[in-house]
Computed example of a mutant assay.
Amino acid sequence: MELIQIISLALLQGLTEFLPISSSAHLILVPQLLGWPDQGLAFDVAVHIGTLAAVVFYFRQELGRMLGDWLGSLAGRGLTADARLAWAVGFGTIPVGLAGLLFKDVIETSLRSPLVIAATTVGFGLLLGWADHAGSRRRDEHSIGWKDVLLIGVAQAVALIPGTSRSGITMTAGLLAGLSREAAARFSFLLSIPVILLAGGLETRELLASPVPVDWTALSLGAALSALSAYLCIHFFLKLLARIGFMPFVVYRLLLGAVLLLIFA
């Protein structure tokens, strides 16, 4: 990989993993449009590790409380708000894990076409805009109940379709459940941690079985840049969300979908 490709894809992964615009769509399309060779599985693992490190570090205090209270709930000390949130993150991950195991081959072959990405980019972008407009936006993430967990968890499983955006669809579901914009985003980010762990674990297993040599310099640079861009993305997104809402991302998705249709239809 050339240096410009390493830098571009690492920054792109870090930014788009947490914005509601689909990281998978951008990582599939940008190399195709620019004529770059496939970045390879090892690089995908590295940038996933970078984004995972960013979200864990950003929410390190919340995660510490959630883990402690979750362990306390196992020991019979009752369910605190942080323990319930930890359980919600765990159970919310089950649908995407099952869907990934059942439909992995279909997702990685027939669903990776530019036209599928264009359709999901536009369709789920419109749904995000409607949810942002129609949602009551009165609840925080600690108020999430089991019906909310089921709704958001199933929505996250749908995000396996390229172009949907895991962050976008889980925030959409959170808004439809009555969460505030910030709460929907925060729960989506917390929910990303086990998902990135699962995806990174599967990719690492495939990587270990691959005979392809590893460029450790490229991987290290990719992981570092994706971690930096992901951390900054989370920080400024949460700072600006109450003021700008989701409409700029809806407009971006509609424009991106239109461009894709013009190019590939």
Rank of each mutant, 00 (worst) to 15 (best):
P248C: 13
R243D: 01
L241W: 01
L238Q: 06
A242T: 06
L241I: 15
F237W: 05
S229A: 15
V251F: 07
G245Q: 01
F237S: 06
V251E: 01
L238V: 01
S229L: 14
F237A: 11
V250W: 10
V250A: 14
L225W: 12
Y252E: 05
M247N: 04
Y231D: 01
L225I: 11
G257A: 09
P248K: 10
G245T: 04
K239F: 03
G257Y: 02
L240Y: 11
R253L: 09
I244L: 11
L240D: 09
A230H: 08
L238F: 04
L240Q: 12
A227T: 05
S226G: 11
A227R: 00
Y231N: 01
C233H: 11
G257D: 03
A242W: 10
K239Q: 15
F237E: 04
Y252Q: 10
G222A: 02
L241R: 04
F249W: 08
F236W: 15
M247A: 06
L241T: 13
S229M: 14
L232A: 10
I244P: 00
P248Q: 12
F246S: 12
F237K: 05
A227Y: 02
C233F: 11
L255E: 02
F237T: 07
S226E: 08
A227Q: 03
A230F: 08
L240S: 13
A224V: 13
L225Y: 12
I234Y: 04
S229C: 14
L255M: 11
I234V: 06
L221E: 01
P248I: 15
L228K: 13
I244S: 04
R243G: 00
L241F: 01
R253S: 05
G222Y: 02
R253T: 04
A223K: 01
A223D: 02
F236M: 08
A223M: 14
F246W: 08
L232D: 07
R253K: 12
M247I: 05
F249C: 12
L238A: 07
L255Y: 04
L256Q: 03
G257C: 09
L240R: 14
A223V: 00
A224M: 11
A242C: 06
I234Q: 03
R243F: 03
L228R: 13
L256A: 13
L254Y: 04
Y231P: 01
L225D: 13
H235G: 06
G245I: 10
G222H: 03
I234R: 05
L228P: 10
G245Y: 05
F236P: 10
L240V: 14
G245M: 09
M247W: 13
K239W: 10
C233I: 08
F246L: 15
C233G: 09
H235S: 12
M247F: 07
A223F: 04
L240G: 10
K239P: 05
A223C: 10
L254F: 05
L232Q: 08
F249P: 08
A224P: 00
I234E: 08
M247K: 02
F246M: 15
Y252I: 11
F236A: 06
Y252C: 07
A242Q: 14
L256I: 13
A242M: 08
L254K: 03
L240H: 08
L232H: 06
L241C: 04
V251M: 05
